[in-house]
């Protein structure tokens, strides 16, 4: 049997403000998710495009909090932050290119 090792290190006391900030971000994430539900189930069906616009906006709010606070990227050096964020612009390009393609296929079949 392995003897339980007794730690000789005394941990530093927790910074209350830091802990509160973590829970505050958690509350924001939960509230935005709840708002997404409200939009999905309570807004009229005919507002389809507006709903999609709201969903994408709220997704980016959540993504921003997760990346900047939980993953700490907002508190790293600015050069590191941009090294991570700028390459993601290529995704937007792929999105645009492939949706033009998809529309062309749709027009060829159903148009």
């Amino acid at each position: 049997m392995i003897e339980p090792e007794i730690s000789s290190i005394t941990p530093e006391p927790a910074d209350k403000k830091k802990i509160w900030k973590i829970w505050w971000v958690a509350i924001v994430l939960a509230l935005v998710t709840a708002a997404e539900f409200f939009v999905a189930l309570q807004f009229p069906e005919t507002w389809k495009d507006f709903k999609i616009f709201l969903f994408i906006g709220m997704t980016f709010v959540k993504a921003g909090y997760i990346v900047m606070e939980f993953m700490h990227l907002g508190h790293e050096q600015k050069s590191l932050m941009w090294t991570i964020l700028i390459p993601c612009a290529f995704v937007v390009w792929l999105l645009g290119a492939l949706f033009i393609q998809a529309d062309a296929i749709y027009q060829a079949i159903y148009g």
Binding site: P11, A26, T33, F70
Partner: peptide
């Protein structure tokens, strides 16, 4: 979604405890 967000929160708290060398945390 809520379960995954909550487990992300507990992960941040684990990282924070690690910064303070708080093994039990």
């Amino acid at each position: 979604t809520f379960i995954l967000i909550l487990s992300s929160v507990t992960m941040v708290l684990a990282v924070e405890a690690g910064h303070r060398m708080d093994r039990q945390g």
